[in-house]
Amino acid sequence: MKTVVLIPARYASTRYPGKPLATLRQKNGSEKSLIQMSYEAASQINGVSDVYVVTDDARIREASEAFGAQVIMTSPERENGTARVAEAVEVAQLDADLIVNFQGDAPLTPPWFVEDLIAAMKADKTAQMATPVLQCDAQTYAMFKEDRAAGRVGGTTAVFGAEGRAIYFSKEVLPYIDAGKVPSENIPVYHHVGVYAYRPEALKAYISWPECQLEKLEGLEQLRFLYNGVAVKCVEVEARGRLFWELNNPEDVARIEKVLAEQ
């Protein structure tokens, strides 16, 4: 199964303009841009034919080409990463059995998250798309609650049922747990890892559908699949002692740099 990884990156982020070019301090004291760190993380995934940065911005293209990335340019009209990836597949005429959308704001994504996702898609020929989910530990759950208490939109949670079929995704912390009933471990809240694996036909269908109301309200592109009756397969992955978090807001820079310093 030929698999390619695409990293959608846009400059005009509402919560964090210019986010792909934001720099993070590394363990050795040097700095790298977020897009370079994400590209390097994606390049560590086994079983992948090619990795591309997908953008509509010349500044991101230039920065990406400077560190050796292949870049596909797309229209600035694309409303989200999935639509940008779908356009890139058409523009570059990519011949692949599986397309992975690797988030450009998640350099802490370990390669085995994506490798497990690819393996799940290979094992389930009926799955049109899939995404990883990670059970929250106490630290991650506290970070979710801290963001919401401060009025910040942070990570996304996933609720799924039998055989990992997604029921809903939200930027709220779901399911709700009364403060006095939160367990110290095995917290039943799942962090949605913003990586997607699609079969080509699923991407074609996606861009043929208009945005749905839930997608617009939550700002979560995967809800368009659920709205149109396409099952989203949630693949549970293991942290293996590492903290996973995305760079959603400027406040997350310090969180990620702390993890980088400790790894």
Rank of each mutant, 00 (worst) to 15 (best):
V182I: 15
A162G: 10
Q135F: 04
D178A: 14
E185C: 08
F160T: 00
Y206I: 00
A150I: 09
G151A: 09
R148D: 13
V189I: 14
H191I: 07
R165Y: 09
M143K: 11
A162T: 11
V159P: 10
A202C: 04
E201K: 01
K171Y: 11
G154V: 05
H191Q: 12
Y176I: 06
D178E: 14
A179K: 15
A205M: 03
E146F: 12
I167G: 04
K145A: 15
C136F: 01
T140L: 15
A197N: 06
E146Y: 14
S170T: 11
A202H: 00
S184D: 14
A197D: 02
S170K: 08
H191M: 08
R152D: 13
G164L: 04
Y141N: 02
M143F: 11
A150H: 14
D178W: 11
Q135M: 10
E185G: 06
R165F: 08
P175I: 09
R165I: 08
V133T: 02
Y198D: 01
R148K: 15
E163H: 10
G180Q: 08
V173P: 02
A138N: 03
D178S: 13
Y168C: 11
V153A: 14
P183R: 05
A179N: 15
Q139N: 06
A166D: 12
V133S: 03
L174M: 15
A166F: 09
M143R: 13
L134P: 00
E163R: 09
D137S: 01
V173Q: 06
P175R: 14
P132Q: 07
A179L: 10
A162F: 08
D178P: 04
E172H: 15
Q135P: 03
F169I: 00
I177C: 08
A179S: 15
P132V: 01
Y198F: 15
V195D: 12
Y206F: 06
Y198Q: 01
G161A: 09
V193S: 04
V173E: 07
G161Q: 05
H191K: 05
A179Q: 15
R165K: 11
A142L: 06
G180Y: 09
N186Y: 11
